[in-house]
């Protein structure tokens, strides 16, 4: 995806005229299951969320595409974590996290939250409230991409 982005960004100069944006965004939720393949080895598969009970591992898939006729810049995808879902991890390190409802952002290792003793403690995955991606490259006309993160049902 990143190679595609950089390639297209080099090819397309800024448009001379403003074109109406037409970005599509779709959120899908899958349940991550470990099944055994024909040789008895564990294999991770994604299934539609038909049967979901607490403790289940979910994969949130965000598909975006630029169906307009101009590149989209400052492309920022923001996903508040649903209530009853705890954050597990994001597939790529480009994701920024917030543990304060979206006020401040960063990697989890640098985020802190108020501890029970009044001092601030290092944030844990369960403290995450929002996840976002800020794409450094414009999304070109016709380009699509996928962002994913994982969470657990409380």
């Amino acid at each position: 995806m990143k190679t595609l982005l950089s390639l297209l960004a080099a090819l397309l100069p800024a448009p001379a005229v403003l074109a109406a944006g037409n970005v599509a965004l779709e959120s899908k939720i899958f349940v991550e299951k470990t099944v055994q393949d024909a040789h008895g080895a564990p294999r991770i598969v994604l299934q539609p969320p038909a049967l979901v009970v607490p403790g289940e591992q979910l994969v949130f898939v965000l598909d975006y595409s630029n169906r307009g006729n101009a590149p989209a810049t400052n492309f920022t995808v923001t996903n508040p974590l649903p209530h009853d879902i705890t954050f597990t991890d994001a597939a790529d390190a480009g994701a920024e996290l917030s543990v304060d409802g979206g006020k401040s952002w960063g990697q989890l290792a640098v985020l802190t939250v108020p501890g029970s003793d009044g001092k601030r403690r290092a944030a844990r995955p369960t403290d995450v409230t929002h996840i976002r991606w800020v794409l450094k490259q414009p999304v070109a006309v016709g380009e699509s991409g996928r962002l994913t993160f994982r969470g657990t049902v409380r």
Binding site: V23, S27, A72, N74, T76, N79, P82, D84
Partner: peptide, 14 residues
């Protein structure tokens, strides 16, 4: 449980 995602972006700087 509902997951909502939003994207903010600019076209031509707008």
């Amino acid at each position: 449980i509902s997951n909502s995602v939003s994207v903010a972006y600019q076209v031509g700087g707008v």
